[in-house]
Design a binder for these strands. Structure first.
Lengths: 265, 265
DNA sequence: CCCTGTGAAAGTGTTCACAGCT
DNA sequence: AGCTGTGAACACTTTCACAGGG
């Protein structure tokens, strides 16, 4: 999702797989570190280790960009840094606005890696008049009345939403109307945008919930342990999951009558 | 990545697909909203719209949990909320520690959705003695010397790392040594953990870079437009991408004919 | 040899379309 | 009739394993 079917039928070949694109920044970071240590070349094996992926995947990824390596040797670090940067569009300057300067917005404004790679915080915007004029990360916060003007004047195409969920959609609408075509959304809201606008979502509570799921599993495994090693594949119509101890009476709540037994046996 | 090969060969069937797990929190949020409006049932179509996915996917996802719907009717909201919560392990309490109380750590501590779903901030930890004792989000920050004790006393199994990148790995090591088995990492570092420990990564600058990639494409499309519709498929050794208007060093295409700026040989 | 680049196989995820329950 | 649940088709991603250049 979010990725936005770019109206190309994706019929074939031209273009880099989304999964690969998502890893390029990772490679870039690892390469930048090597570059700073003046390491001239890396093998796929070494670079993969530094980026936390396996080397076959890395080679495959790079193969979508072109043949930038040298057999028997590896990849030239500087050259790859340049190629990946260019591929990601980081050789140009991207002005970004951050809307909603609460804790998170401020954290982002202060985030170093932000500015370091082609991204420039063009403006910090908040709806609270009290905030206007205050300096955050060395930048003066502006009132949201200015939003359209800022975006226009500075040619901003990327917006970051760090507002409370209740206003995220309307902020999004204004950003889009003003010309923003890529949005990074930190509000826990599903944003609706017109075709051609990309939305990426970062949701803290979702990440935690995913961890909790796996954590719960680990705990369960200790008990269930080895028992089911060979049986499975039989109860295909039944529940798919290992038990997980259901308290008999489900949640004692519900607006009125207790949960009608929607669920049978 | 992150997902952590849970040492099960993943040979098959038992268990919910990772992609589905990642969407359950989304469904849960939509369902909670419906629940608050006292909506008794939803169809897959309605719920999918609210969660921003398509209905076939949603039905498939739910089918991994069991048959919780009623044909011709839809899903009982309260019942589903409960089932998904249980599946995600949110019916139990998860104490969480946040290490590194800078801007981002503070933002997280204040984040409402955090506490709302089974997660409880057990402690805020920082290495700076100046921070110790300060209240953030109503919780006193503790010095990192206490880390092991806190984790032990409170039975913490989930840790959030919001430190500077330089110390992220050592914080991680200490968390793991103390018994934490799930880590949410906000530092732009590849963490190495022993088997059985899950790491999820949230990286702001990576998200932006992915957006920039697509943004660049959009700009390129305007120019390249329709020209290459039918030719290609010839320069197979060459670059795979459409142009994207590069200012300086152009990007010639021959497999060996071009020696761009940085190539040292 | 060493290490890249890549077809082919295997694995995962998504979408379709319809059988079957209510 | 309406809507779920799901096989089967399709699409995407990862992994394997090896051909081939340096």
């Amino acid at each position: 999702m979010a990725t936005g079917r770019t109206h190309r039928p994706a019929t074939r070949s031209r273009g880099i797989p989304e999964a690969t694109v998502a890893r390029l920044p990772l490679y870039l970071r690892a390469l930048t570190a090597l570059s700073e240590r003046s390491v001239p070349t890396v093998s796929s094996e070494e670079l993969a280790a530094a980026a936390g992926v396996n080397s076959a995947k890395l080679r495959k990824d790079f193969s979508y960009l072109g043949s930038y390596g040298t057999r028997g040797v590896g990849y030239d670090v500087e050259y790859l840094v340049y190629q990946i940067s260019r591929e990601l569009g980081l050789t140009q300057d991207w002005p970004v606005v951050i809307v909603g300067i609460g804790n998170l917005g401020a954290a982002l404004a202060n985030y170093g890696g932000f500015a370091s790679r082609g991204f420039r915080v063009a403006a910090l915007i908040d709806a609270d008049p009290e905030m206007a004029g205050k300096q955050v990360a060395g930048i003066a916060v502006q009132h949201s009345d200015e939003l359209e003007k800022i975006i226009n004047d500075q040619g901003v195409s990327i917006g970051v939403i760090t507002t409370p969920p209740g206003v995220a959609q309307q902020v999004c609408d204004r950003l889009v109307a003003a010309g923003v075509t890529s949005i990074l959304n930190f509000a826990p809201t599903v944003l609706t945008v017109p075709d051609g606008v990309d939305v990426r979502k970062v949701d803290l509570s979702i990440e935690l919930q995913i961890l909790a799921f796996h954590e719960q599993r680990k705990a369960g495994e200790d008990l269930a342990a080895e028992d089911g090693a060979g049986d499975d594949e039989e109860t295909e119509g039944a529940a798919v999951l290992p038990v997980a101890a259901e308290p008999t009476g489900r949640r004692p709540q519900g607006p009125d009558g207790d949960v009608p037994a929607v669920m049978p046996a």
